[in-house]
Nucleic acid binder design. Structure first.
Lengths: 218, 218
DNA sequence: CAGGAAATAATTTGATCATATTCTGCGCCT
DNA sequence: AGGCGCAGAATATGATCAAATTATTTCCTG
């Protein structure tokens, strides 16, 4: 197995494992309902038990994985009620972050976000689902960083972890056509430092994305 | 050292440790800025390293503790910006839960909440700070349970963990006088199944509480 | 000679691992 | 069909290793 330290210079193993599993949840091959075993990760990643255990405990706390009472851990399966809750929370929080980002952003930030959005468009054009997921997440992560609100950003990141696998399933079903992209409107609002415009555009983006997920759960 | 299993029949050790430390954060003697060591808890609770590690990793993920870059874990110290973020998040989420609770509640739920609020009043009258903290948290936890929205409840619980220690400091400074208590208004709205009234009362309760915390941070 | 700063030694703490133990689920036998 | 082992996975422990902080010592400077 590949050396874990290769990509995490100086980071503790449990942190590296956390990021690997997190990426598997957001962009990788972990599907809703799929069981996740500790030993499987120990063997698959070549790490010890303790770091894997800590990473999983953290992901469970964030809602990215669920602890099934008996000693079984799985990727969460969203039902309609869960999607509704997630929509409510995202609509409540993410426009606020967009608002703050508009207040605090500078030209460099707009340029960075524009570049990310360009890569996102390229991924869509190529039909590259994983690329879309990565760049879409990157776009929102960068925007949240501009907002400079660490607690709200943490909360929103947790929400993304919860619907990540389901979003991926939806993209697998529908391809990269018809994907939500209010990013142009968000970028325009940021460029003219318009907080309310950015908030409105973000709300539209969130609503569109969550509608897709709701439509996708059989 | 006392037997950990005494109060946690059948629960895994890491779960028991998690609850103990969580209660120490919400109601106990852990102050903002105070360092929390793994070995200290291992010796203090009589548990092994792995369960303690897992419990701490979980609390860090929830924001109840912060990882200080180097390998140090402390109770978070809130600044004005953090209080502002927490206020925003609470105002966005908790009234929603109150609204749902009003829609779903029955007479038994109202009776349960009324009983808790009565104990809360008794604690205030006695000047019992810890009792106030416990019953106040209990009141909101019961209300959230009635709302039947597990994801939103999780998010809000995490927020409470973040401001718990600071709230306790404020109570220590000002005593139990002048404490926020819109609970009567909330209960009245629940009793008449009035979602908007419950949401408004909850918003007032949250705003009042967070204002106290903001005033208390030196 | 005194004070302070830098370097070093010692102790404390965190991270990881190998291993033992316990519990769950499943197949088998009665 | 129901109870009984058996396999496998999760939980928990203690030991070991590495890093960091703290205390101490030493050397240089005023």
């Amino acid at each position: 197995m590949v050396n874990l330290r290769a990509e995490g210079a100086g980071l503790p193993t449990h942190e590296v494992v956390y990021r690997q599993v997190r990426d598997m949840i957001l962009f990788g091959e972990l599907e809703p309902g799929q069981p996740v075993t500790i030993q499987g990760l120990v063997e698959g990643l070549g790490a010890g038990m303790t770091p894997v255990r800590e990473a999983l405990r953290r992901l469970i706390a964030e809602g990215a994985l669920v602890f099934q009472g008996n000693r079984r851990i799985t990727v969460p399966v969203l039902d309609a009620a869960a999607v509704e809750e997630l929509t409510l929370a995202r609509v409540a929080l993410e426009p606020q972050l967009a608002r703050r980002a508009a207040l605090r952003c500078d030209d460099a930030a707009v340029a960075l976000l524009t570049a990310t959005d360009t890569r996102l468009d390229a991924a869509i054009a190529k039909g590259d689902v994983r690329g879309y997921l990565v760049e879409n997440h990157q776009f929102h992560a960068e925007l949240n960083a501009v907002a400079g609100a660490p607690i709200l950003t943490d909360l929103v990141e947790g929400l993304w972890l919860r619907f990540g696998p389901s979003l991926r399933v939806v993209c697998g079903q529908f391809g990269t056509r018809n994907l939500p992209d209010q990013h142009k409107a968000i970028l325009a609002a940021l460029a003219r430092r318009d907080p309310e415009g950015a908030a409105a555009a973000m709300q539209a983006d969130v609503a569109q994305g969550m509608t897709q997920i709701a439509a996708g759960l059989s």
